[in-house]
Amino acid sequence: MSHVPVIATEDLTKRYPGITALDRLSVEIEPGVVGLVGANGAGKSTLIKILLGLSEATSGRASVLGLDTVSHGPQIRGQVGYMPEHDCLPADVSATEFVVHMARMSGLPADAARERTADILRHVGLYEERYRPIGGYSTGMKQRVKLAQALVHDPQLVMLDEPTNGLDPVGRDEMLALIRRIHTDFGIAVLVTSHLLGELERICDHVVVIDAGVLLRSSATADFTRASEQLAVEVTAGTEAVARALTAAGLTVSAAGQILVVEITGEDTYDVVRDTVADLGHGLLRLEPRRHRIAEVFEGGAADVSAA
């Protein structure tokens, strides 16, 4: 299953008058939970719409599940689920009615549609309220309905556009857990977009970063956030003196603001740092291995972000 990328684009470009939404984007996305990160307006929604055939690319090619988006649009749409970012639910029907109708629109026969709707609503955690009109739902419940209609026809791939929009922190955690389960328990490949970098780190296997329609980076989450062979050291006072002392002790030290970055040479590096600082009579505020954050990709040129 890991040979055919679920999504692949080649020089995909989308131009509007005055704006280039996607600029020669070439990326391959493997099955798993893949995050698509970018600021608002970076081109995430545009990409999804082109993949679904809702919008046409100006140039370039794209394929989903091995099928070309232009020539095999309907087949793709039968196998893919979509959760839009914007409001899209009618207010006067119940969740059950709506999801059943959407299931039938995806090609499920009537009985199968009803069965799977009941199942899916249970899985997304919307079982008790499912007969009330959607108009009365909270934002969290509405997001779950949107997710349910994307999953009800058992797609191979599901594309979720900003699924945590408008949710409170608890709701956000629940949604993220649900998304993770879609892959691990349901076996469906997931593409999630977000403009919040932190949350994607938690659930994605792979992250694609785009900005202004251009691919900045695409690699496994672990690569982004791996612990580097570095220590972050922060002291109460005398940062320069400590830096000199550590260098004298044979360690490579560089400064990042108030924090000293010390290369780890072995297990005793920690002890050396601790002893050095204690000898100088200063307090040790921080002594921790340094992790990268996805945000560093945007800072561009951060010295310690390197390809795997």
């Binding site: 055939g53 809702l54 979509y82 409001d87 899209c88 009618p90 006067d92 959407m102 629109m105 995806s106």
Partner: peptide, 18 residues
């Protein structure tokens, strides 16, 4: 009008329906 007002059309068109 309901489909237009509630913006449900993308949900229809992202399915095998043309």
């Amino acid at each position: 009008s309901l489909d237009l007002r509630y913006n449900t059309l993308p949900l229809y068109l992202s399915r095998p329906l043309e």
